[in-house]
Every structure is written in structure tokens, then in C-alpha cells.
Design a protein around this nucleic acid. Structure first.
Ligand SMILES: [Zn+2]
Ligand SMILES: [Zn+2]
Ligand SMILES: [Zn+2]
Ligand SMILES: [Zn+2]
Lengths: 142, 142
DNA sequence: AACGTTATGTAATATTATATCATGGAGAAG
DNA sequence: CTTCTCCATGATATAATATTACATAACGTT
């Protein structure tokens, strides 16, 4: 959070109250939060509650690398490596819904090396894995 | 299409008119079609037009490996390797929206080998790359 | 002070997806 | 042939996600 603030100062980005609050909310969770869940939490915190409030803050956070969108959940998580250029991959536990960010072991070059894809210039790759986390797996085995 | 029919007979799956039509529609396109686009096309073809018609057919096709959902587009494409177990990866052209399916060069084991992820048992991974296809790239360079 | 830029307020609406309950049709069991 | 069961479809409503559009405010620059 502190580092986010520093990063914004350095890059002349405005970490306004709403944006800041949304980032705090995301950082508190290890799950992905939907835009409307965030909207509810914002309202509870005294912010206005129309959808654009949440979506604008989320757009800002995603564009500036503070958060990621998890496409298969239509939800958002705080980035675990903000301020660095990285290609994230996500692990989503289908049981407890925890989301872990890791770094993609696969470079874009790697993927574009496969046959019928050489014709593509890849700009961004999303990788989202679904499974069970360790603690949920243990519970399942009982 | 013929092979889809054979596959269904063999596996005792019902390739009903609506399901068949949706598969035909997907096969005709190299782009991903949204559920409501499909719904419109179904209506044009004389089918009923409530959302569940399209979603049920799409669910059937996805579950049985005839189609895939592209999460970042909320849209669907025909599978290029139906009837085989595979982990697809998709290349989406941001210009012409063509979607190409390729096979993931990365096994699940591969991804789960990365450090903080060893705690996950991965069941399914989606990979979706955005970029520009060859022909659109050429046009851009003019 | 006037201006341009960026962010917020507000209302309306668009898009995507699901829940629910009723109806129909084909094959198996009797 | 009939009844039962299973699966698929019909139909209505509603939920969940996301964007458009236009007005207002805040802030730094000139
Ligand atoms: Zn990240
Ligand atoms: Zn879990
Ligand atoms: Zn496929
Ligand atoms: Zn293209």
C-alpha cells in the first residue's frame, strides 16, 4: 500500500480516495472480488455506489499494474508484483476460491513457436488455472 | 460436422437440431460468437429465441468438447480437435477478431512446477493470447 | 482569472447469464 | 400398449456484469 502510494507519486498518478480504497479492499482479500462486491464495500465505507465508481477505479488499478482481472471469474485481484513488468498466471481454487498469482513460465515467444501460430504477433497472454489448493485438497481426501 | 454426428452416435449423445445448428454456426466462423449473436442467428433459422436455447446448446457443445468458451470475449468457438483430450490455447486478433486454436505447449505439470504454486493441484488451464494476426499486422505496417 | 485536463456524480441502458417451473418426446419396464 | 423415467425444450422472469452519456467538480497551468 505504501509502495503503491510511492509509485503513484513517482509516476504522477492520482491515487484518489476511491482508487485507494478499492486497492485496499483487494489487498485485504486473497480471493478475487467482483465489481459489484467492491461496489457494496465502497458504499459501506461511505462512497457513492453507482457502477462506474467501481469500474473506473478498477480500470485505473488494472491499467497501472496494481490489479489484474480474472477473466474466468469476472473478478479482480491485487497484483502481487506491482510496478514490475510481468506476465502473470493465476491459480484459482474451485473450493475456497483463493487466487494465487505466479509468474508465467512461458514467454510469448515460446507460445508463438508452435506451428499454426507463427502467424500471430502476441501482445498479451492470460493464463488462468483452476484446481484445488493444498488445504482444500487435504479436506477433500477425508 | 459429419464426424461430430458420428461421435455423438458412438457416445450416445443427442445432437439435437438446436445443438447441431449452433455447432454449424460456430464452424462457419473463425471468430468467436457471443451467446446472443448465436441466439439471433438461431432465430433467423426459425428456432425459438430465449436465452436458455443458446446457452443450453453451448453448454452441451462445450461439455462434450465440440466448442470452447473464450473467457476474455465471453464468446464461443468451435473446437479444432473435437473428440480428443487436449489443452487448447487461443490466439485472438484484436483487429479482425479471428480466433485460432492451438495446443498448449505447456503441460499442467510444467506450470505447477513453479515455486509458490506447488501447493495447487491444477485441473484445467486456460490460455488466451491477444495480438495481431499476420494479415492484420501487414495492414498495420502500411 | 481563464483554460484544459482529469476525475467524479448521476441516470439510464446494454450485455451476459441463470433460475424456475411447465411441457413434450423417446426409450425402458412392466 | 401403457406407464414411468430421463432428457430436452418452452417460456417467463430476473440476476449479474458492464458501458454510455452527459453534467459537475477539482486542480494545475498559463
Ligand atoms: Zn501481477
Ligand atoms: Zn482452496
Ligand atoms: Zn479444442
Ligand atoms: Zn487479424
Amino acid at each position: 500500500m505504501q509502495s503503491a502510494q510511492d509509485y503513484c507519486k513517482e509516476h504522477k498518478l492520482q491515487l484518489t480516495p476511491a482508487r485507494r480504497k478499492v486497492l485496499e479492499l483487494l489487498l485485504q482479500e486473497h480471493r478475487a472480488l467482483g465489481a459489484y462486491t467492491i461496489l457494496d464495500l465502497l458504499r459501506e465505507a461511505g462512497f457513492k455506489s453507482q457502477p462506474p465508481i467501481a469500474y473506473r477505479a478498477l480500470d485505473f488499478l488494472v491499467e497501472n499494474g496494481f490489479a489484474h482481472k480474472i477473466e474466468r471469474l469476472n473478478a479482480f485481484v491485487a497484483c502481487s508484483l506491482p510496478g514490475t513488468k510481468h506476465s502473470p498466471a493465476f491459480m484459482i481454487c474451485r473450493q475456497c476460491e483463493i487466487v494465487a498469482e505466479t509468474q508465467s513460465p512461458m514467454s510469448n515467444l515460446n507460445l508463438s513457436a508452435t506451428a499454426d501460430v507463427s502467424a500471430f504477433r502476441i501482445e498479451q497472454t492470460i493464463i488462468e488455472a483452476k484446481g484445488v489448493c493444498n488445504s482444500c485438497a487435504e479436506i477433500e481426501q477425508l
